[in-house]
Design a binder for these strands. Structure first.
Lengths: 225, 225
DNA sequence: TCGTTATGATAGTTTTACTATTATATTTGA
DNA sequence: TCAAATATAATAGTAAAACTATCATAACGA
């Protein structure tokens, strides 16, 4: 039997918990599909409401605005990735091994996970690639940061950085290298697809394997004593 | 006497060349100020037209929309940085030295340059930090890329990657490491300011020097044979 | 000076990003 | 089981954003 799990998110992310009702779950599920399809800029609550057969006003009862919904989705994703890393690194004592697993989790393809029915992790990964930076690249970043909406991302960063510190306690930039790696992981996939001259990850071969090897290279070389 | 220079940009970036008229120059100069002040999302041609005492319709004669104007500004910046790198590395034969200079140019504070009057390079750097990713993180990236609007960024990437190849011809990821470094250079400054737990660059000390040291560390360690 | 071109003034359209109100359906708990 | 609370749907409305169109006038160049 597959365990029924739930990713618990900061309540500042929503007005009404979307996991608590049918409509809420539908909003989350279908917003993933629609944002991936038309892009975040063209995405509106009006379009989503038509898509799910509801109304704009109903969606506004769950999320303050579409930016908050995006933060919710991205936050869900990073929480999910952290859960997977903690699961896969369980009982592994060697920090290098743990770091390799984490790098694998952040750089390669994410498949839909039956433990979380309704939410498509694979489409969510595409949204992270294309839209995640828009969560924090906004004028009111300090204001919303105070509400704790970026806790998931920070926590993941902290976890991976802690492996680096275990490997080399003298390394001066564990958090920076982690955030750079997290960002590079989706950036390189984006560049490989759309701006290939900015990357050595080539579309012809297995882009995820190349992405993984690239990140391993820069991370483990940087950590060498 | 200070030379009068001009950054020549791809004509796909504008409808009418803003460098060719007073109004055009005003649009560019003041859009830098206004975008920095209120952020790209809140920035509109209406607001800019009031700010410069002109009309919305007049601005639309220079730029198709505000996204194109942003690409124009960011493009101008990268062309400027590449010009500076080529200037500063002139006559330096050691590729490691050249790479260090390039890293310095992309990671530290940019000061206003009297060779380009009217344009504030220092404010432009802030816009690059806060808004530059929005130039390509858009659904129509492939379409606009075909018009060559990202040529400046690609060219800079190519230049820096070529130094890496000179230093270590066996290194597998020179373009990826360059684009990662270019992105990290402004990302770390953003994180230091707004999301400090994602970075080891600390606001108390000289953030630009720390940023420079961080990039030197990951780049030169990655390039070691 | 005549014709071209740039700018300004004004008006109008569609869409977005909301807010408000009322009606109806559903749930819950006394 | 029935009343009360709550959720959702239906509808309407507003201000601003993102344009497009037209016409008058100013400036400029040959």
């Amino acid at each position: 039997m597959i365990a029924k799990l739930q990713i618990q998110l900061n309540s500042a992310l929503y007005l009404r918990d979307p996991q608590s009702s049918d409509l809420g779950q539908k909003i989350v599920q279908e917003s993933i599909v629609l944002i991936d399809k038309i892009g975040f800029e063209s995405f509106t609550f009006k379009k989503l409401s038509i898509h799910i057969g509801s109304t704009e006003a109903s969606i506004y009862r769950y999320f303050e605005n579409k930016h908050r919904l995006l933060i919710y989705l991205i936050s869900w994703y990073w929480n999910y990735i952290e859960y997977r890393i903690s699961f896969e690194t369980h009982n592994i004592s060697d920090p290098e091994e743990r770091l390799k697993i984490a790098v694998l989790m952040i750089s390669t393809k994410v498949e839909d996970d039956p433990s979380f029915p309704g939410i498509s992790e694979s489409i969510l990964q595409q949204i992270v690639i294309n839209e995640s930076d828009k969560t924090y690249l906004t004028k009111n970043v300090d204001e919303i940061n105070k509400e704790g909406v970026f806790r998931g991302y920070k926590s993941l960063c902290e976890t991976i950085a802690s492996y680096m510190i275990e490997i080399n306690p003298d390394f001066k930039f564990p958090r920076s290298l982690t955030s750079t790696s997290l960002e590079a992981a989706h950036q390189q996939l984006f560049f490989a697809e759309h701006l290939p001259r900015l990357s050595d990850v080539k579309k012809e071969k297995d882009i995820y394997e190349q992405n993984y090897q690239y990140l391993l290279t820069i991370i483990f070389n940087s950590l060498k004593k």
